[in-house]
């Protein structure tokens, strides 16, 4: 089975069965999963920061760039945005210092949600905030999205799609 690791500041799209997209050990970063409701197409962005300070520095590590870029790539693979559901994992506050930049997790989640809203994509599930590390996995074939917290059990976020284009052969 091909597990595609999406590293910090990166994004990836996969189609067809057998692929799993994963971001491992998310802290203040947010894993943004976009999954097609009708076919085996999904994408994952591993967002580090809310917004690019200047246009020249824009890139997938920023929420305001990563979300539209992922939506574009999914549309090219046959999943238009009105066919997409989102699930979010991460955005934790691992440390708390008064009035500091350590609130990046909260700001990341807010920026991701704003970007998804302006694309008209619903957030169906989220395992965010708090103060623990998490791993997100997106099963492309079934559309399932899972989250695993540090020292915790595997938690389903998005269930397998019910309307599926794959046909099951019955054995009689």
């Amino acid at each position: 089975m091909g597990e595609i690791i999406v590293k910090m500041g990166d994004l990836a799209v996969a189609t067809g069965p057998g692929h799993v997209l994963a971001s491992i050990g998310l802290g203040s970063c947010v894993g943004v999963a976009l999954v097609s409701r009708s076919r085996a197409v999904a994408g994952l962005a591993h967002v580090m920061l809310p917004e690019a300070p200047t246009e020249g520095s824009a890139g997938p590590r920023y929420a305001d760039y990563a979300v539209p870029a992922l939506v574009r790539e999914l549309a090219e693979r046959g999943a238009p945005k009105d066919d997409l559901d989102a699930a979010l994992v991460g955005g934790a506050q691992m440390f708390t210092f008064d009035g500091s930049t350590m609130e990046i997790g909260l700001r990341n989640e807010r920026a991701v949600r704003a970007a998804l809203e302006s694309e008209g994509i619903p957030v169906r599930a989220a395992a965010t905030a708090g103060s623990t590390g998490r791993t997100i996995r997106v099963h492309v074939a079934t559309g399932e999205v899972t989250c695993k917290e540090a020292g915790g059990a595997l938690q389903p976020l998005l269930r397998a799609r019910t309307t599926t284009t794959t046909t099951q052969r019955s054995t009689r």
Partner: peptide, 8 residues
Amino acid sequence: MVSAIVST
């Protein structure tokens, strides 16, 4: 998780 801490 080490990655969650170091990345943050």
